[in-house]
Design a protein around this nucleic acid. Structure first.
Length: 465
RNA sequence: GCCCCCUUAGCUCAUCGGUAGAGCAGCCGGCUUUUAACCGGUUGAGGGAGGUUCGAUUCCUCCAGGGGGCACCA
């Protein structure tokens, strides 16, 4: 049923198909509402019109059956456009009952595990996931229009690098070796920069062997984009455009999401009932300034006393942490969650960012920003490190942490080092957690509400009744 | 991994230390303009395993799944 043809003029012969959502059998006549992706339509079976044999089939219809109906458009006494049936085709029989027709499917677990039931019983849910698709399309359109090349790179990798996380491991039987599911896209996209592509991106799944939480799914969708010769200002502008274009693609927030007032501005989102303004330009703040404002600690001056400073704030940090890691810890515990309106936090400690260029004025910091909004990280970007000597040293530092028992520290990726030894142009790189972006834009508090099929613990297999 | 909460029929909800109740769906019957159609009848249940008790769905313990929070991250 096409929306335009959903209400054709009376008397017209039509052929419609859809799932039976309501049945009102009343002796020798029967009304039903059938539904497809676009619309709901009433059909009307009369035994004297359709014939006794066909009407016997009507009697046997169940909610959930998918039927085709040939008939003429008419209007009922109440004026509802209705297809008065001349013929019925049972396209498929539903063997299982539909969720309760009035309340719909309420049980959250069933909604996650059996999304098809959630979707078929809820118009709103179908629209919700179409919105996700629209946002991903918007991200692609921004990048495509700027000449970025969309590429696909390996998910199965001998070394899972490009981030700090425990990878999923699997086994390649014919070679009898263990391989890992990627935890980031980064290192392959940079190899493509070496290869001469100047703007590349990938939107794809990455996998991290971590626990489940309302904000974590073991597999999630990451956007990574790399632009040769771009600096951090370029990446900030790109990030802003990606976020605002996504919001526009989504359309205005719904009034029932809370907030100050109903509003048709798609850049005004609502998160947990509070307004969030996504109007560019977003604020830019240095991490050390944010930490100084919040705690009085001047991290640059007190670099070697940061452990004591953290202790004085009641921020617990492991004794072996580097000063930069302590600064990051203070920032994350005291500042990050307090940032509501979108803010680019710039200049991260070098020792927690092994793949970024150091700032020219202070080698303890790197050219990196994270976009924070509603207290959460939305995007992460840096000027990519293209000095192979520095890169090797940083990998070696990671490897030492790994040897010391840090399962999230990646091993040295010699193949990647060899690539950038050929020469990688200076470049800006950006990563966006697409599911998190969706959560922010739609106000979802659980990541499972933006994933069609969220990862669930397996249930014991129950026999079919 | 830790803490708190939840789990009653296919679905949506009640009740309760003493034979577990309803609506929808299902089944049987009636009804040729219904709209959560209606009317009559009817099938079906307390996540699993232990314990306390004369008696447990209810109280306790453990297990499983889910929700929320913490931790980690995106």
């Amino acid at each position: 049923m096409d929306p335009e043809s959903a209400q054709p003029p009376e008397g017209e012969r039509v052929s419609v198909a859809g799932r039976v959502m309501q049945l009102r059998l009343q002796g020798k006549a029967c009304f039903a509402h059938i539904e497809d992706e676009s619309a709901r339509m009433q059909v009307w079976f009369k035994s004297d019109r359709i014939g006794d044999d066909a009407y016997e089939v009507v009697r046997l219809l169940d909610l959930g059956d998918i039927i085709g109906v040939d008939g003429v458009v008419t209007r009922t006494r109440r004026g509802e456009p209705t297809v008065l049936a001349d013929a019925l085709t049972l396209l498929v029989k539903s063997l299982r009952p539909l969720p309760e027709k009035w309340h719909g499917l309420q049980d959250q677990e069933t909604r996650y595990r059996k999304r098809y039931l959630d979707l078929l019983s809820s118009d709103a849910q179908r629209r919700h996931f179409m919105a996700r698709s629209a946002v991903v399309r918007a991200l692609r359109s921004v990048l495509d229009s700027r000449g970025f090349l969309e590429v696909e790179t390996p998910l199965l990798q001998p070394i899972a690098g490009g981030g700090s996380a425990v990878p999923f491991m699997t086994h390649w039987n014919s070679l009898d070796i263990d391989v890992f599911l990627r935890i980031a896209i980064e290192l392959h996209l940079k190899r493509l920069l070496v290869g001469g592509y100047e703007r590349v991106y990938e939107i794809g799944r990455v996998f991290r062997n971590e626990g489940l939480s309302p904000r974590h799914n073991p597999e999630f969708t990451m956007l990574e984009a790399y632009q040769a010769y771009a600096n951090l200002d370029d990446m900030r502008e790109l990030t802003e455009t990606l976020v605002t274009t996504s919001a526009m693609a989504l359309g205005p927030a719904h009034p029932e999401d809370g907030g100050s007032a109903p509003c048709d501005d798609p850049l005004l989102r609502r998160v947990g009932g509070t307004d969030l303004h996504l109007h560019p330009p977003f604020a830019v703040r240095r991490m050390v300034d944010l930490v100084r404002d919040a705690t009085g600690i001047d991290a640059v001056a007190a670099w070697d006393e940061l452990h004591d400073a953290a202790h004085g704030l009641g921020v617990e940090v492991a004794a072996q942490l580097s000063p930069g890691a302590v600064l990051l810890e203070i920032y994350e515990q005291r500042v990050e969650h307090t940032i509501w309106e979108p803010t680019f936090v710039v200049e991260y400690p070098a020792d927690v960012t092994p793949l970024a260029r150091r700032t020219p004025h202070d080698p303890r910091f790197v050219e990196r920003f994270e976009l924070i909004a509603a207290g959460r990280e939305l995007a992460n970007a840096f000027s990519e490190l293209n000095d192979p000597v520095d890169q090797r040293q940083r990998f070696e530092e990671q490897a030492r942490r790994r040897a010391a028992g840090d399962a999230e520290a990646p091993p040295i990726d010699e193949d990647f080092l060899e690539a950038i030894e050929v020469g990688m142009p200076p470049a800006g790189g950006l990563g966006v957690g697409v599911d998190r972006l969706l959560m922010l834009l739609t106000g979802a508090s659980n990541i499972r509400d933006v994933l069609l099929f969220p990862t669930m613990r397996p249930q014991r297999q129950e026999p079919m009744q």
